[in-house]
Design a protein around this nucleic acid. Structure first.
Lengths: 249, 249
DNA sequence: AAATAATGTGTCGCTATGACGCAAATATAC
DNA sequence: GTATATTTGCGTCATAGCGACACATTATTT
């Protein structure tokens, strides 16, 4: 944000997006970092005074990924008094070249913030990780997330816990995978989020029995040992399933 | 609230509680109403500047029901720009005897509000519906909820939808029912929230197979035709089940 | 005395599920 | 070149759980 805009935003409230992608057999999240600050953070933003919260989240996502029309859901409001660490914020401001005596900057950043958590599923290959002015953007595997700004590690954990509990009714594969994918890739997503191993054969039977997925004529050869079949989602059936509530697991 | 306190609260954000109780075979929600205003509303409040959001919700609940130590969960942030209807708010203020020219009152109430939705399960019999100064408090069956203040009908709907989707992992019976209860009472709760009829015999088999419930020596006679057995929750097993994630349905 | 309504205790058949077997295709090791 | 490991495709089999339903029992209503 440009600090001049501060008056256009709702005070004391921000939003943070946990953006999931799937690449090289791993679930990853998109993080960014102010170039002169040490800590990575979730892509986030503020809400214009006349803007719907969901619209603000969509705007944040478009800015960072170039993608609109993405599966994006609000999942929790983080309202701990101590989640905003004033010392940490001051440190960040100074490193970014601001003076803490600057009234406008201090008043805006050195206050208590609520943060609205959103999670998003994007197709990794379609993302063009936009770096804003003085920002870096990068993907991090779930196992390799560094200590983040304020409670952002906690926000990611909560997002994963939420997704896990809703896995039955979330079209997660459809959103994360490319049009053609192997059932192993789909299984890895579920295994990662559920933190268990799933029997390969039983998983296939269950997925195929939903009828939401059909075998394409193409084959995936690059990887591993034996070439594997590529599948696609039946988009119509998928839309129906979401409306009427799907139950995969 | 006393309006003099406005400066102690976080601006632009409020919270609303959907408080569920079970009485006479029906699920009900607790609503209140300013005596001189026409519309009923969800019990709600504001958040002190140094107060955790959950603490503010607990405080609201204690005020209205006299109950602490209640199952209370945040479920959604309502952030539509138009959810706060300024005309409606002004009407309410005037009916309550305030002048719209009163700077303090207007500035506080005639602004955009976010609202954090909480739902709670309470034991109906333990509630002493406290009426504050000029408030009425009453229970309403889910089928008989009148048009409420702003988007409060929508908030209730969203609460029910959320609970419904989490019914597997929520200890709803334990929280809503008295210590001894019949399995029919428990079944009605599930039937109401799922909006379906459940086969009485299959339901019993399933509930008993969880081992979370045991038959007490007492019998419930008052109602219906045949006296029915009273059951209780095994509290230890219940605590374990919540920790490790229960799955009832 | 008959009708109504709710409860306790089952049965029965089907399906989904979890556990596992085995051959085929590819890569790496010796 | 042969052996070994890994991953895929396509199965089997026994069991637990589930939906549907039967029937006697108890109590209230008419």
């Amino acid at each position: 944000m440009t600090l001049a805009d501060a008056n256009d935003y709702c005070p004391g409230i921000s939003l943070d997006c946990v953006i999931f992608g799937f690449h090289e057999g791993r679930l990853k999240v998109l993080l960014n970092k102010f170039s002169r600050y040490t800590k990575w953070m979730l892509p986030g933003g503020f809400i214009y005074k006349d803007e719907h919260v969901d619209a603000a989240a969509t705007r944040t996502l478009v800015n960072r990924t170039g993608l609109s029309d993405v599966y994006l859901r609000q999942f929790y409001l983080f309202g701990d008094v101590n989640r905003t660490n004033m010392d940490e914020n001051e440190d960040m401001l100074i490193r970014q070249g601001f003076s803490k005596d600057d009234e406008g900057v201090s008043k805006w950043f050195l206050q208590r913030f609520f943060s609205i958590g959103y999670y998003a599923f994007v197709e990794y290959g379609k993302v063009e990780a936009h770096s804003a002015m003085d920002e870096e953007v990068a993907w991090f595997g779930l196992d390799h997330i560094p200590p983040l700004y304020t409670d952002h590690n906690h926000i990611i954990d909560k997002a994963i816990a939420t997704i896990r509990s809703q896995l039955n009714s979330i079209p997660i594969g459809y959103e994360l995978l490319p049009e053609k994918f192997t059932l192993t890739q789909l299984r890895i997503i579920y295994e990662t989020l559920l933190d268990t191993k799933l029997d390969r054969r039983n998983f296939q039977r269950k997925i195929l029995s939903t009828g939401l997925v059909y075998k394409s004529d193409e084959v995936y050869k690059k990887w591993g040992q034996k070439s594997s079949a590529l599948y696609s989602f039946d988009k119509d059936k998928y839309q129906d399933a979401i409306k009427n509530g799907i139950s995969i697991f």
